[in-house]
């Protein structure tokens, strides 16, 4: 559904904010977008401490963000912006073809992910696509997304939990049982392990996720997207 002054309106132009380190890239890409009748560039700049305020003040519809700026800013930037502007569409450009980076970006809420070998016309087409509510991703990485979801459903594990906290699928399985309130003895019976082995696992997980209790373990992994 289009907003009153949104995509449904024939004269509406999507407001684009360009956030990239390289000024030449911002200037020329901005000019290419301005040549298209459906876009207006409402702001551009490199990453700074004031970037969130600047993007919010621009009231942009689309945020074009380069890979390096995203690394500088961390995923908090995207989280914070999307919390403040839930309709904002974030398009990452100049990205590496790395499955893990891509899945993390999707989890952070981006609408599009373009590799660094994309052409200028592909960037413009991607801005148009995300404006129209579509998602943009390279086909090979789309396959990685399918794999991620299937793996999560099959194993009840979250690769991001493994990547960020270093928890193996077995440890995640154990956390899932801890979250259900099972005792070490009950977990041992469930997993056909000795109670001592379960104690050792729990002890190691406490150290790995810097938790002081079983409930802190559960809270920490849930923050990483793990739902038991």
């Amino acid at each position: 559904m289009g907003r009153p002054n949104g995509p449904g309106n024939a004269t509406w132009k999507a407001g684009v904010y360009l956030l990239a380190e390289n000024r030449l890239l911002r200037e020329t890409l901005s000019r290419l977008l301005q040549k298209k009748t459906e876009f207006r560039v409402v702001g551009e700049g490199a990453y700074s401490d004031a970037v969130i305020e600047q993007v919010l003040a621009s009231q942009c519809d689309i945020l074009l963000l380069d890979g390096v700026t995203r690394v500088h800013a961390g995923t908090d930037l995207i989280h914070e912006l999307l919390r403040a502007l839930p309709d904002l569409r974030v398009l990452l450009i100049g990205m590496e073809e790395e499955e893990e980076t891509f899945v993390r970006a999707v989890r952070s809420g981006v609408a599009g992910y373009l590799l660094k070998d994309a052409s200028a016309m592909e960037v413009v087409a991607a801005v148009r696509a995300v404006t129209q509510g579509e998602a943009v991703c390279p086909p090979r990485l789309c396959q990685a997304l399918f794999h991620y979801i299937a793996q999560q459903a099959r194993e009840g594990t979250v690769p991001a939990v493994q990547a960020e906290l270093g928890l193996t699928p077995r440890q995640q399985q154990l956390v899932s049982l801890v979250a259900q309130g099972l005792t070490n003895k009950e977990i041992a019976d469930h997993l056909h392990l000795s109670e001592q082995t379960v104690k050792n696992h729990v002890h190691r997980i406490l150290r790995q996720v810097h938790a002081r209790s079983r409930s802190e373990i559960v809270a920490t992994v849930r923050n990483c997207g793990f739902s038991s």
């Binding site: 380190e21 390289n22 000024r23 030449l24 890239l25 200037e27 020329t28 490199a46 380069d66 890979g67 390096v68 100049g94 660094k116």
Partner: peptide
């Protein structure tokens, strides 16, 4: 030489040896 992900570029020229000078990566 333009660094795609950074704020600057570098201008190189030769005069007996190779010299360089930083230039902002702007149009």
């Amino acid at each position: 030489a333009v660094a795609p992900n950074h704020k600057y570029s570098v201008y190189y020229w030769a005069s007996l040896k190779i010299h360089s000078h930083d230039v902002e990566a702007s149009e």
